[in-house]
Amino acid sequence: MPRRKSPSAVLFAGFNYTFLIGMALLCLAPLVHVLAVSFSASSAVTAGRVTFWPVRFTLESYRFVAEKPAFIHSVLISVERAFIGTLVNMLLTILIAFPLSKESQAFSRRNFYTWIFVFSMLFSGGLIPWYMVIKGMGLLDSLWALILPGAVPVFNVILLLNFFRGLPKELEESAFMDGAGYWRTLWRIYVPLSTPSLATLTLFALVGHWNSWFDGIILMGTPDHYPLSSYLQTMVVQMDIKSMIGSDLAALQQISDQTAKAAQIFLGALPILLVYPFLQRYFISGMTLGSVKE
């Protein structure tokens, strides 16, 4: 496309770059500020002198967090949950997506199963009956309560089944000719051919588990069993909201550990920031997985 350099075009480009870069910086500014707070001296933060760069740099807040057994413990629970949970999610996603990716001629009961899964996305029993079922299964206060109720990520199943459908049918036919059954076709042909999609979905599942906080709060009986996100919700967010309505004294106490809170917020976000480059790489491909079909 030829570029015209009329004065108005130059003016527009200048405005456009300034606006977009400003907006992008504005998106990151709150995170940068919290990071700066976490590395600053408590007194400087209370005095409101910290903006986007640490004032009187210190690692005090991180030392404080590292010595908090409850924090470390919740990190371990989160890691365990994310690992087992993602494994369960991916296994079930693959096992469901493969049969549902068949045409109804090849798998007569396909539409029946598909509707069962899709309906579970469209309608839900709501919070209270959901809680009652998990309680009734005796899962309360165990790690499995955070893994089994969400074991089937239906949306991911749909993304993967659409991807499977895009693979040439001849692959399966020739595998059958060579005497492979459905199981072998799935593990030896479909799974190796879809590694980029599976990587995307694995990252989505990992991020989902790491970020989940509500189930931890209502399904874990004691705070000792909270994963990190739930721990942060009660220790950082709820405490702050309470302090906003509580007495001035309580508020003052809260302010004094502002830097520790900032450090915990940053540490909670850190794993996401670390996988972000990978998320981004697979992001577009992951999103176009479930695009418009003919």
Partner: peptide, 22 residues
């Protein structure tokens, strides 16, 4: 193919359709 779906189906029946009955 039914066997592949079975475990996932069981989870959805318990944790999505169970609450609907509730």
């Amino acid at each position: 193919l039914d066997l592949m779906i079975l475990p996932g189906l069981a989870f959805v029946l318990i944790f999505s359709y169970g609450p609907m009955a509730g």
